[in-house]
């Protein structure tokens, strides 16, 4: 069984992003970029399935500019067997990403496609679900636990009401939530080995994928900031203040 894992290059989660003054986006020049943390969890889960003998091959895929090969190298260093880079300098929105991944599904015929539940840049939380729709596969989103048993995956999902468990027939799309696992630290020898692992590169045209109509970003602005309030010295003071607002 093959597992395909999609990873995205995003601004590192530690970076305090800044909205550009002209409203044209957020400053990203020279800013530290990393693999989307949810995707890292997805890669880790795929590798654990392989290490548990439930999968033979883990293929990492990314869609993005040349530099996103860095994130593929990270996935390869973590232990993915090979990688696919769909190279494009365009802004790829979820529906197009799903189309691309669907085209790769046709090529690779994986049993599981793992993705992070959302990318921390656009916070869309869509690609996995859209891919499942296009492929006509089951989806198990926001996974916090995954058990693969033959042709069925039992997935525990973090939902607003608690923990929901569903069973999905494979092949399926699974999106990872934060508590699914803790990704490993990459070992230095594996960084070196990753260099020798193959990365196949395609363009959208190679895959016969046409970009979907996209949502147009008209402007980017900084959020309204909350005014810092006051520090009170005592509990009594706090209680009085809250009572004044009718909250206590």
């Amino acid at each position: 069984m093959k597992i395909l894992v999609a990873v995205k290059r995003v601004v590192d989660f530690n970076v305090r992003i800044q909205v550009k003054a002209d409203g044209s986006g957020v400053a990203s020049d020279g800013v530290k970029m990393s693999m989307n943390p949810f995707d890292e969890i997805a890669v880790e889960e795929a590798l654990r399935l392989k290490e548990a003998g439930k999968a033979e091959e883990v293929i990492a895929i990314t869609i993005g500019p040349k530099a996103s090969q860095e994130q593929l190298r990270t996935a390869l260093a973590m232990g993915a067997d090979r990688a696919i880079h769909v190279e494009t300098d365009e802004d790829i929105q979820p529906l197009t990403a799903a189309r691309i991944l669907n085209a790769i599904i046709d090529k690779e015929e994986p049993k599981i496609v793992m993705l992070g539940k959302q990318a921390i840049d656009d916070d869309n939380n869509q690609t996995a679900q859209m891919l499942a729709a296009l492929a006509n596969w089951p989806q198990a989103t926001f996974a916090s636990q995954l058990e693969v048993d033959g042709d069925v995956a039992n997935v525990t999902r973090e939902v607003d009401a608690g923990l929901e468990t569903i069973a999905v027939d494979l092949p399926a799309v699974i999106s990872a939530d934060l508590r699914l696992n803790e990704p490993r630290y990459v070992k230095l020898p594996d960084i070196m080995k990753a260099k020798r692992k193959p990365i196949d590169t395609f363009t959208l045209a190679d895959l016969g994928v046409e970009a979907a109509a996209s949502v147009k970003v008209l402007k980017t602005s900084a959020p309204a900031t909350r005014q810092a309030g006051i520090k009170v010295e005592t509990v009594d003071e706090l209680v009085v203040a809250l009572k004044e607002r009718g909250l206590f």
């Binding site: 860095e70 990270t74 260093a77 990753a194």
Partner: peptide, 8 residues
């Protein structure tokens, strides 16, 4: 590799 080493 340089980038990978520094990152990891």
């Amino acid at each position: 590799i340089v980038q990978g080493v520094v990152d990891e």
